[in-house]
Design a protein around this nucleic acid. Structure first.
Length: 116
DNA sequence: ATTCTGACAGCAA
DNA sequence: TTTGCTGCCAGAA
């Protein structure tokens, strides 16, 4: 048996991935909301960091559905092209203008509420 | 081991 | 009002 040096899936990061993957199609959430759902509350920065390494996960992480609390696509530059994130969101019915989600409150998805 | 950074958020001036 | 600074937690150098 190969000794799996793989780390546990219960890491803070994995939780972020889990929540992020649970974001329904056409919905969005904020870093703070996820952090708060994880119990860290003010560790919203970690959520963004986790998504930064989301490439570690085997599955695709809809990180484009995660924005800051202002509804601004702060991490659009991490998608390779600065327009990828906005296009993906617009493709899901999110209205974006100038990297700002207009119907942010309308499409907002709170994990602490929706995700028991 | 120590130090810095980081896709944020909240508060101060 | 806007702008900027600090605080948060965890990982990377």
């Amino acid at each position: 048996m190969p000794s799996p040096k793989k780390k546990v899936n219960d890491d803070f990061f994995s939780r972020v991935y889990e929540v992020t993957k649970n974001i329904p199609y056409g919905r969005i959430t904020s870093y703070g909301a996820i952090a708060r759902y994880l119990g860290s509350g003010k560790s919203a920065r970690m959520v963004g960091w986790a998504l930064n390494v989301s490439h570690n996960d085997r599955e695709f992480i809809p990180a484009h559905r995660v924005v800051n609390r202002k509804g601004l696509l702060t991490g659009k530059y991490h998608f390779g092209n600065s327009t990828t994130m906005a296009q993906l969101l617009q493709n899901e019915g999110i209205i974006i203008e100038n990297d700002q989600i207009l119907n942010f409150e309308e499409k907002f998805w709170d994990p602490a509420k929706e995700l028991v």
